[in-house]
């Protein structure tokens, strides 16, 4: 078994062009669902969610010719697993100047997995303001939810084994755009 755990077992499931297409589609869906509403706010979850949110905002600008405020929402202080690791450094939270009260907030993250991050994000939003609605956009939904949470917009559904790891790379942070999976698909957790 362990013999197969080499860097070679990493496979690319989305390349740069596919990521671009997926984000463009997500942008269209957000616009479609908003029905021209001008109260959208995109909040990316650091680190990579923020870059994805900025890209979605650019697509919306291209489609609709209007600006959508983009912010960042760090959920570290709301995590439910803080005591399982040493205290983590905080990542930036930046709420756009207009705030989120009575807005439609679209949370943007790279991977939707257990749903615990999104649960934490919903708690964080609750302390910041009272949006009209909260929606969720993710680049990859890999399944294995542990909470009753689902995404409103999904770039790509990628069924995975729990023993696999999903790596989302974005050019702004990692120098390239790609989604890769490493590890075994036989469903065995180590």
């Amino acid at each position: 078994m362990s013999a197969a755990r080499t860097p070679d077992d990493t496979r690319t499931v989305l390349d740069a062009a596919e990521i671009t297409r997926a984000l463009t589609r997500v942008a269209h869906e957000i616009v479609e669902r908003a029905k021209g509403a001008d109260d959208l706010v995109l909040l990316g979850i650091p680190t990579r969610g923020v870059f994805l949110a900025q890209r979605v905002a650019e697509r919306i600008r291209a489609i609709e010719d209007r600006e959508v405020p983009v912010g960042a929402l760090d959920i570290t202080m709301y995590r439910d697993d803080l005591r399982r690791a040493p205290a983590r450094a905080l990542l930036p939270t930046e709420i756009p100047p207009g705030g989120i009260d009575d807005k439609v907030v679209v949370l943007v993250d790279d991977v939707l997995y257990s749903g615990r991050t999104i649960r934490a994000a919903l708690d964080a939003i609750n302390d910041i303001g009272r949006p009209r609605a909260v929606q969720l956009a993710v680049l990859v939904d890999r399944g294995h939810r542990e909470l009753p949470i689902r995404a409103d917009y999904v770039g790509k559904n990628i069924p995975t084994s729990k023993s696999e790891k999903v790596h989302v790379l974005v050019a702004e942070h990692d120098g390239e755009d790609a989604v890769r999976i490493s590890g075994h698909a036989n469903g065995e957790d180590q």
Binding site: D74, Y78, P92, T93, D127, I128
Partner: peptide, 23 residues
């Protein structure tokens, strides 16, 4: 620097309606 950077993020709490974190 970790303390100072963490404090810089936490300082934003002052401007929020709910000045509390569940941590």
């Amino acid at each position: 620097l970790l303390v100072l950077d963490t404090a810089a993020e936490l300082a934003q709490l002052t401007d929020r309606a709910v000045k509390k974190l569940p941590t």
